[in-house]
């Protein structure tokens, strides 16, 4: 810790070397494993994770595209679930943020804790709870039970993004709008929505990314359907062509990367709220 402490004293002189090395090593630790995933998508060795790969090829991309029809239905399902769950979360999360940022009322703290609960508790609890509730209600497992589960934890992501923006939205702007003759709905349309729009979009993007690769809750709420992460999990446990799994993983990395970058771009002017409490 002494290197951190020194940092304080020598702030003007730039960061101390020890701290910089620690920070950069930490970041490399975060990123190198993902680079390996990409590397192994090009290996010629399909049975083991031999390093360095004995040879390089691009044939697995073709194999994944043409010879593995089992990839497509899970992909479609994941996209469908993520899209619907995100839409539901957008509506419910925005409503919750709007209500809780409006006024102080009794129980507000408890309610905001309630919205954070689905991500604060381990996913397996959310999963098994929903499963036993569906059992009790006699609900058949289907696409909709998956969506129900995903929407529950996606609400939090939208809520977190929206409430941060609502708090920054000065109450004066709303009063100014009403003062100038706009009723509540007009104020929402012309003042509130343009102000929170980018935060909602960012929240929606992150919710989509979260839903798209969720596996823990999905395992419990899915019936016979398999989403892309579930497909991947079964490939991890019982591998067939390992490099094909890598190809799909590379695809997943990029599919989730786009909304993350977009969400960052949309909220970069403000506080960094997006993932602080995913």
């Amino acid at each position: 810790m002494s290197s951190d402490a020194k940092a304080v004293g020598s702030k003007k002189a730039g960061s101390p070397l020890g701290l910089r090395i620690a920070a950069i090593t930490g970041l490399l630790f975060l990123h190198l494993p993902l680079a390996l995933i990409i590397l192994y998508a090009f290996t010629t060795e399909e049975r083991s994770f031999q390093f360095p790969p004995p040879g390089y090829t691009t044939k697995w991309f073709g194999v994944a595209w043409y010879e593995r029809p089992d990839i497509w239905p899970p992909l479609y399902l994941s996209l469908k679930v993520a899209a619907i769950a995100t839409l539901m979360a957008l509506v419910l999360g925005t409503l919750a943020a709007a209500a809780l940022s409006r006024a102080k009322f009794f129980g507000r703290e408890t309610i905001s804790l309630l919205f954070i609960l689905p991500i604060a508790l381990p996913g397996i609890i959310t999963g098994i709870s929903l499963r036993s509730a569906f059992d009790i209600m006699g609900l058949d497992f289907s696409v909709w039970t998956i969506i129900l589960g995903h929407a529950t934890f996606c609400i939090v992501v939208v809520y977190n993004n929206a409430i941060a923006r609502f708090r920054r939205l000065s109450g004066n702007l709303i009063e100014a709008s009403m003062d100038l003759g706009a009723d509540g709905f007009q104020t929402f349309r012309y003042v509130i929505l343009p102000q929170i729009g980018s935060a909602l979009l960012a929240g929606g993007m992150l919710a989509f990314a979260l839903s798209f690769d969720e596996v823990i809750v999905t395992t419990f709420t899915a019936g016979q359907q398999s989403t892309l992460p579930i497909w991947m999990l079964s490939e991890l446990i019982r591998p067939r062509q390992r490099p094909v799994t890598n190809v799909v993983a590379v695809f997943v990395i990029f599919v989730t990367l786009i909304p993350i970058l977009a969400a960052y771009y949309l909220t970069r002017e403000g506080e960094h709220t997006g993932g602080a409490s995913k």
Binding site: S170, L173, E175, A176, D179, L180, V191
Partner: peptide, 10 residues
């Protein structure tokens, strides 16, 4: 109509 203290321009 009001002129706000911090002007409250949109």
């Amino acid at each position: 109509n009001t002129v706000f203290q911090d002007y409250a321009l949109f």
